[in-house]
């Protein structure tokens, strides 16, 4: 993949499905599928009819020509359940001073894209989003119509308040336990480990959880100088520091936080991926998939 789509370019397009399709199509170009044959869109080969096959899959034209029953087989992706968990706390609304998207906007586009790819493969997708008293739940299903339902849910969400206590999400997290993939998107800035606890509660030996942490460039690089009054988006607490002098301390703290987070999630076999929301989304996805492939390989 040589060229990636700049977030600034995508941000100018105010059409979530279009962006998701554009990123996904570009991304899918070059990514190999699992070559698992079965029900799907793309025709792969014929095979002899076996008892138990659906009669609808018999190619009647071929039967007319050859007087034998053949079943159409299509190339299909692995059909798995993909759950998306989205952190809608207010800290997700942060964006870099010159950034195109906030972390939350990026997260919505990322989920729209990932879910598009999943539904293209015939996988079932579901959504659980929570934060600031709001909670959105979309059960598992497949198909384009379901994908559009998911997009409508995403469009309604706002970044506000704090991520809820995971004990209040217990019933919502239960459907995530069967085998499948859970993609949790958050900045993992938490007041009382509520996000890591949520990931931990969603985790079972049968499913695979991937935590995608979103950070903006300003959070990663701390570019401020002079007197800066930081205002916490969730607690409204303010802190006055000299930007230039506080940078080293902040970067140390961020590094320590990342390490703690990695260890905490790693203990439950949860993979942590960190995306920079000011970098092209398809590039981040490409490298993310590459890492997954290498890990699987």
């Amino acid at each position: 993949m040589e060229r990636f789509l700049e977030p600034r370019t995508l941000a100018r397009v105010k059409d979530l499905p279009l962006i998701a399709r554009t990123v996904a199509e570009g991304f899918l170009h070059g990514i190999q599928s699992s070559h698992q044959r079965g029900i799907g869109v793309e025709f792969s080969q014929y095979r002899a009819y076996e008892p138990g096959d659906e009669p609808a899959r018999i190619d009647w034209k071929l039967f007319a020509r050859s007087d034998r029953y053949f079943v159409r087989e299509a190339e299909r992706e692995s059909e798995i359940a993909v759950w998306f968990v989205l952190d809608c706390s207010r800290s997700m609304s942060m964006k870099s001073a010159d950034g195109a998207w906030s972390k939350f906007e990026y997260a919505k586009h990322l989920l729209a894209t990932l879910s598009y790819i999943a539904q293209r493969q015939g996988d079932m997708v579901g959504l659980l989003a929570a934060g600031g008293g709001q909670q959105a739940f979309l059960p598992l299903a497949s198909g384009e119509r379901h994908w559009h339902r998911l997009l409508r849910q995403l469009a309604r969400l706002e970044a506000k308040g704090q991520f809820p206590d995971p004990t209040t999400l217990k019933s919502a997290l239960r459907p995530l336990h069967p085998p499948g993939l859970v993609v949790m998107v958050s900045d993992f800035f938490e007041a009382a480990e509520e996000l890591t606890e949520c990931a931990r509660q969603a985790s079972t030996p049968r499913n695979e959880i991937t935590a995608i942490q979103l950070l903006c460039r300003d959070e990663r690089e701390f570019p401020w100088r002079g007197p800066v009054r930081f205002e916490d988006l969730e607690s409204n607490e303010t802190v006055l520091v000299s930007g230039r002098d506080a940078r080293a301390t902040y970067l140390d703290q961020l590094h320590a936080h990342q390490q703690r987070l990695n260890q905490s999630l790693g203990r439950h076999a949860i993979t942590l991926e960190t995306f920079d929301v000011d970098q092209p989304m398809d590039e981040a996805m490409y490298h993310f998939m590459l890492r997954r492939q290498n890990k699987a390989g």
Binding site: S91, P227, V228, S242
Partner: peptide, 28 residues
């Protein structure tokens, strides 16, 4: 007017900045 105000930056995780304050705000 600008005393003790500084540039206002809405921030995601203030805990990471908090430890810098005690040491540096008086210098500022």
């Amino acid at each position: 007017i600008s005393r003790s105000r500084g540039v206002r930056i809405p921030f995601g995780n203030i805990r990471l900045v908090r430890s810098a304050r005690r040491r540096l705000v008086h210098e500022l």
